[in-house]
Design a protein around this nucleic acid. Sequence first.
DNA 1: GATGAATGAGGATTCATTCAT
DNA 2: CATGAATGAATCCTCATTCAT
Lengths: 210, 210, 210, 210
Amino acid sequence: MTTEIKPRWTRRKDSRPQELLSAALDLFVEHGYAATKLSEVAQVAGVSKGTLYLYFENKEELFKAVVRETIVPNIAEAEQLIVEFEGPTRELFKRLIRTWFENINTNKLSGIAKLMFAESSNFPELAEFYRVEVIDRNELMLIQLLNRGMLSGEFKQLDLAVVPKIITAPIIMMMLWNTSFKSCAIEPILTENYIESYVDIMLAGLLKSN
Amino acid sequence: MTTEIKPRWTRRKDSRPQELLSAALDLFVEHGYAATKLSEVAQVAGVSKGTLYLYFENKEELFKAVVRETIVPNIAEAEQLIVEFEGPTRELFKRLIRTWFENINTNKLSGIAKLMFAESSNFPELAEFYRVEVIDRNELMLIQLLNRGMLSGEFKQLDLAVVPKIITAPIIMMMLWNTSFKSCAIEPILTENYIESYVDIMLAGLLKSN
Amino acid sequence: MTTEIKPRWTRRKDSRPQELLSAALDLFVEHGYAATKLSEVAQVAGVSKGTLYLYFENKEELFKAVVRETIVPNIAEAEQLIVEFEGPTRELFKRLIRTWFENINTNKLSGIAKLMFAESSNFPELAEFYRVEVIDRNELMLIQLLNRGMLSGEFKQLDLAVVPKIITAPIIMMMLWNTSFKSCAIEPILTENYIESYVDIMLAGLLKSN
Amino acid sequence: MTTEIKPRWTRRKDSRPQELLSAALDLFVEHGYAATKLSEVAQVAGVSKGTLYLYFENKEELFKAVVRETIVPNIAEAEQLIVEFEGPTRELFKRLIRTWFENINTNKLSGIAKLMFAESSNFPELAEFYRVEVIDRNELMLIQLLNRGMLSGEFKQLDLAVVPKIITAPIIMMMLWNTSFKSCAIEPILTENYIESYVDIMLAGLLKSN
DNA sequence: GATGAATGAGGATTCATTCAT
DNA sequence: CATGAATGAATCCTCATTCAT
């Protein structure tokens, strides 16, 4: 009933990294890697500078952890859908896209995408990690979707090497758009209309025209 | 009393900034704003650090100049096409896209896009400038194109508030992809196949299905 | 409610400082005062960082304690010999030197000498303490020895202000040599041969040549 | 033939490192490596912190440079004497020792010796350098001296593996003594008397007793 | 008594910027 | 116009020290 069995400070120590990562994510996304000061991260997380170093060896490791820890728990979710879904592929596609868009704003993944484009050449290992864990997995997922549609005769013959990227592009764009221009005078994209047109256009391009 | 007495230098003074801007653009694109050292810029441009300050007040102004100077001369070009082109809009669309893609690799504009996403929150005025000079103008151009198609009855009824963004997205994506992951192990997109699929999909989505 | 109920800890409190001092001595000697981290001392001693502060007010006090506690118990021993010894002074000299050398390797005193040279200007009070407790006592001891030899007619007339230092020098040197260059590629001095030559040379210099 | 061909500021840039090294040497010797602040070095040298980094990559390299640059120009001098000297070896020995002692106070080499003992385990490569450039060369020099004496029949048979160290010890001791305890209440050694007794004792130990 | 998480002052280092030449 | 030596503010990072448990 009580947690006294566990070491007294465990809870504190366990939750701390999450708070730090969360603060760091926000700031890295907002200012970029170099322009983010660790003192600021600490301040936002409500700890002292030194505390950061109890959990992350240095700024670079903190950054890597932010990217890794944010990505990993968000990937699997999407992969489920495809495997489980029953019904016409066009409906699956709609569902998938809608889910995806819904996650964009909830989810910190959008910010990571921006970071990866911005910092990939400064952190090649991270870019590699991102490719494997996000890009490749995502493309695989889309390839499965497209294959499903082509096999069922719903979709036309598609170039699986490039179509996933084309499909993904408008979603990424929206991620980037909203995380990058949030604080500027540039108005955010109207999600609802965007999705609708996007689905229309894409499906028209994917479905067999009869 | 005027500087016209030394005509030799006049030209030099004019050309020097171009070399500096070019070096700066390359480095800003590769490493980002903060990670780019002025000493490096100077070195690549073949001048001393001090010389930079003869032409640009400081790093920030250099950055702004890079963005502005690179953008401006590249915009007008595309705008011409639309006005002048005669023939079916689908052909105009194909021409436009193809020209665009051709420019991606030639042209430094791709790098600027990346920079803007990365640094827009650090340089809001620049983001604003970019929106006006690039995003808005580009959207306007696409709106003209789409209007032309809708008026001629070739295109279906389209939401002009979002479709330009959707159309642009895969092109931006490719820009970002190639400038961001160039030096990483991530393989570049195969341009030819990408364009073909892209045009197919988009046209299917834009044209009236009959 | 009081802690008197737990007598088990009392003894522990006494022994703990020795383990700490021992760990600290080793590390101070190996790395110097500033380069020795208290976390390392704690780790080597098998306690937590906090525990150190139960026994020593701060790093400086720990250092002072190390020096003092290591010196004190080792001084008296040597002083005994002279008083008790019977026989010719040259034999006493030999015995004394041999005992001294034997102690060098056993004994942590060598390391302290190194520390004192290195840190005396950072810890003047310690240097003073060292002078009184080690240098002066040692010189006094040697003066007694030399006096004994001169009175008995064995030794020539010697300058008691400097000869003790000259006699001590090769022993100190060996201490320093072995503690300083232990981990380097510098080969340690061969003790046996060193002593023999040392005693030969010194005695030749001290004894009346007839 | 003229130096005008060289860049204008050469003189400034050339002398700067020496001033920095000199300031650094003083402070390293006085406080030790870790306790010496670069800001202090800069201040003593009359430059800003940043300037240090124009000439030395970091603190460690500055330290290494201090050791190397101070040692190198001081070694050769002593080596000359032996080769050139004519006359009995005992006179050569006296000359050598006297020169040596004279240099101790003039010369910064004393401080380096102290540093090497204190920091050798933190800078093993430097210790190795010191061994080769100072210790070994010095021992070789003394071996030549001793050989000269043994061949001429002046000196008794000596163990060349250890006697050079024994001879050197009192000189090193004096170096250490004076540089270490300078600012403490410990009184410095009286050089004149020290040398005299030292030479007496050593020569008695080296010369054939007849 | 013992722990180790948390702190923050202090110092090394970087780099945009200035200025004498 | 051009240079590059010099500057010092800004930031990362370390580690002695504290204190709640």
